[in-house]
């Protein structure tokens, strides 16, 4: 069982305890895949699905798509495009920040500025 598959199953089963709409069949229908395929994903019998399907599963389960993509061993296409546009700059930046604490990483992201009101 992959970490991705086991995580999907754990989250779905937790939701199903309170809401029967989180059965394999109903979740698969809402995500747009076959129930058998979702079962195989959960059991790790197949590789994690495509980016689009992973994002739909994440949204259906109320999880962060970036985190679920990371669990599936993927980086979203929009992030890849950002890196490809300025590969040296972003490769340097990511390497320099890899050991930094969250606070330090957040200091380099763009804040929504608060002003006078």
């Amino acid at each position: 069982m992959t970490h991705f598959g086991s995580t999907v199953r754990a989250i779905r089963e937790r939701l199903r305890r309170d809401d029967r709409r989180y059965s394999v069949r109903q979740v698969a229908a809402r995500v747009g895949i076959e129930p058998a395929y979702l079962s195989k994903i959960e059991r790790g019998e197949v590789a994690p699905p495509s980016e689009a399907t992973t994002v739909r599963i994440a949204r259906e389960l109320g999880e962060d798509p970036d985190i679920m993509l990371a669990l599936a061993g993927k980086v979203s296409a929009d992030l890849q495009a950002i890196i490809r546009r300025r590969p040296r700059l972003f490769a340097d930046l990511i390497r320099q920040l890899k050991e930094a604490p969250d606070e330090a990483v957040l200091r380099v992201v763009r804040e929504v500025r608060d002003g006078e009101w």
């Binding site: 763009r110 929504v112 500025r113 608060d114 002003g115 006078e116 009101w117």
Partner: peptide, 20 residues
Amino acid sequence: RHVDDYASRLPDAWHARGGV
């Protein structure tokens, strides 16, 4: 959108309060 990205098209008072 960030208000800061459109400062030249917005009243100064809007830019001063920041936000989105």
